[in-house]
Amino acid sequence: MILNLEALPMKRLPLLCALSALAFASSANAATIVIETLGFNTNGVAFDATNEANASGELLNGAAFPGANVAGMTHDITLTYNNLDLDGDTTANDSVTFTINVTNPGPGLLFNQGLHTNWGTVEGMDVSVSGVSGVTTDGGAPIVFDGFVGAALGAGDGSGTVDRSATINGIPYSLMASGGTGFVFVQDFQDFAPVATLQYRNSGGTQGTLVARNWDLQFSTAIPEPTTLGLLGLGMIGFAARRR
C-alpha cells in the first residue's frame, strides 16, 4: 500500500512520525559477551583470577560458601558478575545477577575441584541458569542469558593415571593421562552453540574421578541503533509541534 502524506490531515502527521519511530525502535543490535571458564569449588568462584575478581555476593543454596565439602542432590549457586560491557559503550560498568542450578539423580558433591555425583562420575547431572536480573547502566536495557556456549569436564586421580569419558549434550569428552606419579588432573573443554541446559551423560572408564569443572555463559542485551534514536527524536518533535 502506498501512503499519500498529502491526503493526511496535518494533525495526524506528528502521530505518524512517532509511530514510525517506535516501529524502527524494534530493530536493534545485540551486544553480546561471554563469561569464560566460570567454575566453583567450596570457597565460591574458583580456578580463574579474573572471574574471582569480578564476582560478588556468592551464595550456595542461599548461604555463604562453607569452605568444606557440600553434599546434596541440588546445588543452587547465586552470584553477581560485574565489570561487563553490555551496552556497547566500551565501558565495563554493567552487572548481571543469576543462579546456576545443578541437579543430580542421587547424592551430589561440591568439593575443591568442582562438582560430581558423589560416585566419582557426572552421570545424570544437569546444569541450567535461572533468576537472571540486571539492566545496562547507561541504557537501562534488560540483560538476558542466551545459553551455555562451552563447558569443561575434568578428571583426577592420585595414581598418576586417568582414563575417563562422558558426554555433555551428546558431545564426547575424553580424559586420559598415564605414566605419572602422585595426583594428576586433566580436563577437556568443548565449545558449542548456545544451549539452555547442560546434560552430563554416558560416563565411562574406571580410573579417576569425573568433575563438572568450568562453563562459558553468554549474555546479551539489545541496544538501539543510532538511526533509531534519531527517528524517535523526530517523533517527539512532531508531538511537540502538535501541542503548540
Score class of each variant (00 low, 15 high):
D94P: 02
T221H: 00
N83I: 04
V144E: 02
S130G: 06
L8N: 04
G179E: 09
H116S: 14
S133E: 05
G108W: 05
G208P: 02
G235E: 00
A240E: 08
A166C: 15
D85Q: 03
T103G: 14
V195Q: 15
N51I: 02
I237Q: 15
T136Q: 04
T121W: 07
A46H: 06
N169R: 09
T103M: 08
N82T: 03
L175T: 10
I171N: 14
P9W: 01
T91S: 01
A64I: 08
L86N: 09
D163E: 13
N61W: 10
S178C: 04
V102Q: 13
W215A: 12
M10R: 14
W215L: 15
R243Y: 11
G72C: 05
N82A: 01
D126I: 04
L217F: 06
E225Q: 07
R164L: 02
T167L: 05
T50W: 07
S165R: 14
N69D: 15
G139S: 10
L234Y: 11
I2A: 14
S128E: 09
G238N: 03
G67L: 11
A53I: 02
Q207H: 05
D146H: 05
D87V: 00
F111I: 04
T90K: 14
R12H: 12
G170Q: 00
L13K: 03
V162T: 08
W119K: 14
W215Q: 15
A155C: 13
V96S: 02
T91M: 03
M73V: 08
I223M: 00
A25Q: 12
V45R: 01
A53L: 06
R213W: 12
L8Q: 15
K11C: 07
C17W: 07
V149A: 11
L198M: 12
F145C: 01
S159C: 03
P194K: 06
R242W: 09
M236N: 08
F111C: 07
T74N: 15
G62P: 12
S133H: 03
S20A: 12
T80H: 11
F192A: 03
G147W: 06
P194E: 07
D85L: 06
G160S: 07
G57M: 09
L16K: 10
N51P: 09
